[in-house]
Amino acid sequence: MPKKIMVVEDTPDLLQHVTDFLTMEGYDVEPCSNGHEAYRKLVYSKPDLIITDLLMPKLDGFALIEKIKQDKNMQHIPVAIFSAKPPHENEARALSLNVQAFIKKPCSLDDLHEIVKSILDK
């Protein structure tokens, strides 16, 4: 049973690239183009990991993470932030929301894969 990863990214090209790579690596990928869509899907879909961008229309990354952490059914799901924003601007907030990892854009496929694997192997 492959691990299920939800990817939330508003830049369509980037979402496509990440989805394609993770699928190729054997994961069950659920792509979402904004936080709103992601939260809606989480009601019935239980991923093993959520990778989310921060700056997004409708529901941005932090808002989505807060919602997840407040929901008993989802708060146990590990979350990784995938953002171009420098980490020092968001680290404190990310830590308070118990985020598992911060993946800085741009990053290589290997780096991405390492982080995903390390979270899912725990």
Partner: peptide
């Protein structure tokens, strides 16, 4: 800050796309 962010997003796409080609060119 914004400029770097604005540059990082396309750079991410480029990085992932080129990495994808490199990694899976056989497949």
């Amino acid at each position: 800050s914004i400029a770097s962010h604005e540059f990082r997003t396309p750079l991410s796409s480029i990085s992932l796309a080129s990495g994808f080609i490199k990694k899976y060119k056989q497949k």
